[in-house]
Amino acid sequence: MRARFPAFVILLCVAGGAGAQDLATTCQVASTYDLTVRPDALVFERADAAPRTVRMHDGALDTDGKQVPLRPDEQDRVALFERQVRNLVPMAKAIANDGVDLAARAVRDEAATAAPSAVSDGELDRVLNARVADIKRRIAASQSTRDWQEDAMRAYAQEIVADVGPILTRDVGGQAMELAMNGDLQGAAALRDRVANVTTGGQARVVARLEAALKPRIQALCPSIGQLVELQSGLHDAAGRPLLLVERGG
């Protein structure tokens, strides 16, 4: 069964921010569930083992379509668990939005090193701004962590890096051709190598910058995430199995 970082915090990793494994290490918690945050309920889902579906709303708990009888104190804990998750989501999305901005700035810095003129004419900024706006729209609209698993996050980071590739290639290509025609083959090759360095190694450098910038903010949420482990303690599914939506030990 594959462990995932808790669904309500996976949003923090958008655009290649700190990886899920690093986050699990940071807060020492993990989950095997995907989460969908609906207006009427939280829905946790997984395919590997029962309970496959867990639904929470206003102190009520259903697992695999069956209502779980709860004492009043258990209802209170379920309600608090739901409220805690809903409170975490906007904070996570805010960090994710900042992560997108940080990623775009990091990519711009990479591009400025490889091809300064591509930055100075404004084309690169227009492309980056459009990509940032698109990813932020996806963050705002997302209700399910299926949109933000590790593979998806890496893809978003690659989208940002890949956007600048054609711009740099066009910008440097003309300069390199001119150098080559004037007999400076070494200079032409050096220009092309600078672009290749951005498109092939740029993502790793962008991710490293995001990890350094966002990790302290992620750590600040760890106590709230840890409280979820305590709130679910003693709760069971409809078949009497302990409810383990969030688990310590990453």
Score class of each variant (00 low, 15 high):
48 D>M: 13
118 A>W: 00
155 A>C: 07
44 F>Q: 00
102 L>V: 05
72 P>Q: 04
83 R>K: 15
110 E>W: 05
222 C>W: 13
227 Q>M: 02
195 V>G: 08
59 G>Q: 09
17 G>C: 14
226 G>T: 07
140 A>G: 03
140 A>L: 03
234 G>Q: 09
201 G>N: 14
84 Q>Y: 12
85 V>I: 15
60 A>P: 00
169 T>W: 09
84 Q>G: 07
10 I>M: 08
164 V>I: 14
80 L>F: 05
30 A>R: 15
174 G>D: 05
173 G>Q: 03
190 A>H: 02
187 G>F: 06
17 G>W: 14
1 M>F: 06
164 V>N: 07
29 V>L: 15
52 R>Q: 13
184 D>S: 10
180 A>S: 13
213 A>E: 10
233 S>A: 13
103 A>R: 09
52 R>N: 10
159 E>L: 12
69 P>M: 12
114 A>C: 03
165 G>V: 14
175 Q>P: 04
242 P>C: 09
147 D>Y: 02
121 D>W: 08
114 A>M: 06
27 C>G: 08
88 L>D: 10
183 G>L: 01
80 L>R: 12
184 D>C: 05
122 G>Q: 11
190 A>F: 04
30 A>G: 15
128 L>H: 08
135 I>N: 08
30 A>L: 14
12 L>Q: 01
219 Q>D: 15
119 V>F: 01
221 L>M: 13
17 G>T: 13
122 G>I: 08
247 E>H: 06
210 L>G: 07
135 I>R: 10
250 G>D: 10
118 A>H: 02
101 D>F: 14
162 A>F: 11
205 R>C: 05
128 L>K: 11
36 T>I: 00
55 R>M: 11
108 R>D: 06
37 V>G: 01
247 E>M: 13
116 P>D: 02
81 F>M: 07
114 A>P: 06
45 E>T: 00
207 V>K: 04
144 S>M: 01
124 L>H: 09
109 D>S: 12
98 D>P: 02
183 G>T: 12
8 F>N: 06
64 D>Y: 02
90 P>H: 11
87 N>R: 06
55 R>W: 03
102 L>I: 04
227 Q>N: 11
161 V>E: 11
140 A>M: 01
126 R>W: 00
108 R>T: 11
10 I>R: 01
106 A>P: 03
221 L>Q: 03
75 Q>R: 13
180 A>R: 15
178 E>V: 10
202 G>K: 11
162 A>K: 14
176 A>F: 12
86 R>C: 06
95 I>T: 11
64 D>R: 00
136 K>H: 07
93 K>T: 06
209 R>L: 12
220 A>R: 09
224 S>D: 15
79 A>K: 13
15 A>C: 13
228 L>A: 00
15 A>W: 11
90 P>D: 10
137 R>M: 05
55 R>S: 10
30 A>Y: 15
109 D>G: 12
